[in-house]
């Protein structure tokens, strides 16, 4: 395959533009995914941050939730940040009853677990497999991972402070998820990891 895979960013709502920029810098072709046709064209998909309740509603209204689940089931690599992590989790606490998810990663996450915006923060994190120095992680009304299945690889936990030990980045096969927002920092190492996953599974 070509060295620059085509990766989509699900463009229902949220931080779409930043992911597109990071993907391009990480060596991919990137498009915003608005429709079924867009979804069918891409070799990997980013689910951005935003409001997971809104993404769920819009995905249902636009008839995208089942195609997204089907694409995931057939092995399309996906990377979710923040709300995107919620969309990719198999179990979600503190969600509305009518909220629908894509699922696929055998984790339980809690919405807004770190608190409201007044508690949102940034800090340096060690992230497995990205090499180099610590990663600048921006957490915004962020979820965290409460349980992980045996197939799930933990890529990062918070090292110190009151939340020490909290799991904030995971991978299961072609599925990657972070509680934080790598797209807001200009550091493209996590996007580069995802581009590698897409190449590997293509």
């Amino acid at each position: 395959m070509s060295s620059a895979p085509l990766i989509g960013v699900l463009a229902l709502q949220g931080g779409v533009r930043e992911h597109l920029g990071s993907l391009v810098h990480a060596g991919a072709h990137a498009i915003a995914v608005h429709s079924l046709e867009d979804l069918e064209a891409v070799q990997g998909l980013v689910i951005p941050g935003g409001e997971s309740t809104v993404m769920s509603k819009l995905a249902i209204q636009d008839g995208l939730i089942e195609p997204l689940r089907a694409a995931r089931a057939t092995g399309l690599p996906m990377f979710g940040s923040c709300a995107g992590m919620i969309m990719l989790a198999n179990r979600v606490s503190d969600a509305r009853e009518d909220q629908e998810f894509i699922g696929g990663i055998d984790i339980a996450v809690r919405r807004n677990a770190f608190g409201r915006q007044v508690d949102s923060f940034e800090m340096d994190l060690e992230v497995q497999g990205i090499g180099g120095t610590a990663f600048p992680a921006v957490f915004i009304r962020a979820p965290w991972v409460e349980e992980v299945g045996s197939e799930v690889q933990i890529l990062s936990t918070i090292a110190a402070g009151p939340r020490a030990g909290t799991i904030v980045a995971v991978q299961q096969g072609p599925l990657l998820a972070t509680s934080f927002h790598p797209e807001l920092t200009g550091d493209i190492r996590i996007h580069a990891t995802f581009v590698e996953i897409v190449r590997q599974y293509a």
Partner: peptide, 13 residues
């Protein structure tokens, strides 16, 4: 970054 990032997450809404 945390403040402006919060606004970024509201885009399209």
């Amino acid at each position: 970054r945390v403040k402006r990032g919060m606004a970024e997450m509201l885009k399209g809404g």
